[in-house]
Design a protein around this nucleic acid. Structure first.
Lengths: 189, 189
DNA sequence: TCTGACTAGTCAGATTCATGACTATGGATT
DNA sequence: AATCCATAGTCATGAATCTGACTAGTCAGA
């Protein structure tokens, strides 16, 4: 039950609809978890059934009505309990790493292309995270914000996301360079 | 079908038993994927059924017999195909990040303890990866090894694992420092 | 002699996650 | 006028993953 707590954590700061939540989780703004819209709707239904969030219908004129959800006291207690419980370690689990692991035994042309693509993706997210961070801290420096700001949770997780993507970018670039160099060395024109 | 390819990639370089494979996947030596022993045994059964790996019984005197698996030509072809196919992006998915996201709303005492624990775990893995890397490259420098060595795949994935854990360590330490400082500021003795 | 740890592997069941398809409406674009 | 995109959400199904319990033999140490 991890998605469950991720949803609760995301709803702590603002009341959101399932759709808005899906946006955040899908487009990586919520860099601490990832989920498909359908999963979120289902989870919200379960959370409401269990009394951990409460939804209220908001009637809209020019678009479909929506339900905004907020965390209840019981939900906050659940999160508190979750936070106190021990955390299991997390591991990287990435198709791209599997492919690189096999790099000595398969053709690397397509692999290099995919590493390049991933590096570009990482750069886009680094950009996004940089903007999000600047938006959150406003005109303060990072140090000031982390000392005095309220709601530093999202900022801290965003920092982790940023570092992760920087790691991706650097590793992809380096791996591409390595594979290219080896290819040239093994098959000179 | 991702575990499937991870198993194939792990078996490329050496013939392993299910048990040995489980060791590697569980203890994080295979830093590019993580799986429970049961999953691996099940996957090996399926892989053999599909002709992607072949197992041979090895009779042992003082301990239970074991089955060693190797990748078949069909298995290699499957991996080749997998590597050529496009890779979906990977995201961090970490309970600890969920907890930090909620840091402004819950008690941070337990959280700080867990961040500290995670930092220690990361340090242990950094150590392990460092040893593995040194073992793989022998007396060569990294540059030399990546240029001339055979089997650089495992080395490259290990580098990613190392960078990931360094990122974990740094972020955990920084987050702990931030949370501690804020706690002192808000409740001075 | 008993206990625990290591090697080696299996079975069953539950939970979680991912995918595709589907309903509606309104606004903007072509 | 037709099509696409964004909002807002639902349903069904399959694939992947995780969890606990279980068998069975060997070896080392209390």
């Amino acid at each position: 039950m991890a998605l469950r707590h991720a949803v609760l954590a995301a709803l702590l700061d603002e009341e959101l609809s399932g759709y808005q939540l899906a946006k955040a989780f899908d487009l990586g703004v919520a860099n601490f978890w990832y989920a498909q819209p359908q999963q979120l709707y289902a989870e919200l239904t379960r959370l409401e059934r269990d009394g951990l969030v409460s939804g209220r219908e908001v009637v809209q004129e020019s678009r479909p009505n929506k339900r905004l959800f907020r965390v209840t006291d019981a939900g906050l207690a659940e999160l508190e309990e979750f936070t106190a419980a021990s955390t299991k370690p997390s591991f990287i689990r990435d198709d791209l790493l599997v492919k690189v692991q096999a790099a000595d035994h398969v053709d690397t042309t397509a692999l290099v292309a995919q590493l390049t693509e991933r590096a570009a993706f990482a750069r886009a997210r680094i950009d996004l995270f940089g903007k999000l961070l600047r938006g959150m801290r406003g005109d303060r420096t990072e140090e000031e914000f982390l000392r005095d700001g309220d709601r530093i949770g999202p900022y801290l997780t965003c920092l982790r996301g940023l570092a992760f993507e920087e790691g991706n970018r650097d590793w992809c670039e380096r791996t591409v360079a390595t594979l290219r160099e080896r290819r040239q060395a093994s098959s000179p024109r």
